[in-house]
């Protein structure tokens, strides 16, 4: 228990006193605004104070009510501006990959002035490109994009790989990403598309996008922030999941990172192999289903292999061309 908790208790006691005025409220606001931990501690102390009202049934001598009756206490909770983490991450994007950082500066500016751009990334390469319409495209490893910013519509063709878009608002020019037969349309929003042979995965980080398939007559599905879906190439979209945490994790590549949350070793290995020519191979199939949690750099498969060695107590053989686990 910290001093912050004690100070929070003092504030709650003061709020419950008869001498509570605007000046005191302003002082409390200042304290709360200073640190989110203050807000958390204050919220906790208020909850404990209110919880003690339970004891009032002992004074009344009645039976224990199922639902406690709480006074309408004039507690006011102040909210400090606290932008969601994703926003900060977007602003500091590229801190992770040295390759990415070095490439962005030169190429980004060059491309910003053109309406038609073709982009290709090598294995392990990550690029963040501002487009002429002031949208931003983060392009993941081993990907190819053809961008055509027409006056009626902004057309993006994802030939292969994965990209995340922070789309500049322009109602007159829809922003449409094509991946095979799958189409994803946004006005002002942020989302990613990853192309697979049999369809495309769509993750929405902000706003709303519409997803449809040119091969079917089904109406476009609307996806909101925090949702993900897999749109098959041959059929209409079936399921959409609301998984903000998973969406955030799946986009860790924008910072040159791989985020594992109870993923299997096999899944983790596949992820690393997307980014590196030094491939990881699992020699012992029994290890495939071991589960791991953690954040790793996409360009450091050796660090990952060492971590696996420590975590699972398995042999790891690191060579120049490949890493063998098990």
């Amino acid at each position: 228990m910290s001093t912050i908790d004690d100070i929070a208790a003092q504030w709650v006691a003061r709020q419950a006193s008869t001498q509570w005025d605007n000046e005191a409220q302003a002082q409390l606001d200042d304290w709360l605004m200073a640190d989110v931990r203050h807000q958390g501690a204050h919220f906790r102390a208020q909850a404990a104070w209110l919880m003690l009202d339970r004891a009032s049934v002992m004074g009344a001598g009645g039976s224990v009510p199922e639902v406690p009756e709480f006074n309408d206490t004039p507690f006011v909770v102040t909210l400090a501006p606290h932008p969601p983490l994703t926003r900060r991450r977007i602003l500091t994007t590229l801190g992770g990959g040295a390759v990415a950082a070095s490439l962005t500066v030169g190429l980004g500016l060059a491309y910003a002035l053109k309406d038609r751009v073709n982009l290709t990334t090598e294995v392990g390469e990550l690029r963040k490109i501002p487009l002429k319409d002031r949208s931003i495209a983060s392009v993941n490893t081993d990907s190819r994009l053809e961008i055509d910013l027409k006056t009626s519509q902004r057309d993006i063709r994802l030939i292969r790989g994965e990209a995340w878009f922070d789309v500049a608002k322009d109602k007159t020019r829809p922003f449409v990403v094509a991946a095979g037969n799958v189409r994803v349309r946004a006005v002002g929003t942020a989302f990613s598309v990853r192309k697979f042979d049999h369809g495309a995965e769509v993750l929405v980080t902000e706003g709303v996008v519409e997803v449809w398939n040119t091969n079917t007559d089904t109406a476009p599905a609307r996806l909101t922030a925090g949702t993900r879906t897999f749109a098959p190439d041959a059929a209409a979209l079936k399921t959409v999941e609301f998984r903000p945490d998973a969406v955030d994790r799946a986009l860790a590549w924008r910072e040159g990172q791989i985020a594992l949350d109870n993923d299997t070793l096999q899944t983790a290995v596949n992820e690393f192999n997307r980014y590196n020519s030094q491939k990881i191979r699992l020699a012992d199939p029994a290890l495939n289903d071991a589960r791991l949690v953690g954040w790793f750099r996409t360009d450091q498969p050796e660090t990952f292999a060492r971590a696996v060695h420590g975590a699972l107590n398995v042999t790891v053989n690191i060579r120049n061309d490949e890493i063998i686990i098990g």
Partner: peptide
């Protein structure tokens, strides 16, 4: 600065119990 007081007592009761 935003202040929320409407739902607040209910929220505090939930956290408390």
């Amino acid at each position: 600065m935003t202040a929320r007081s409407g739902m607040c007592t209910k929220h505090l009761a939930f956290v408390g119990s």
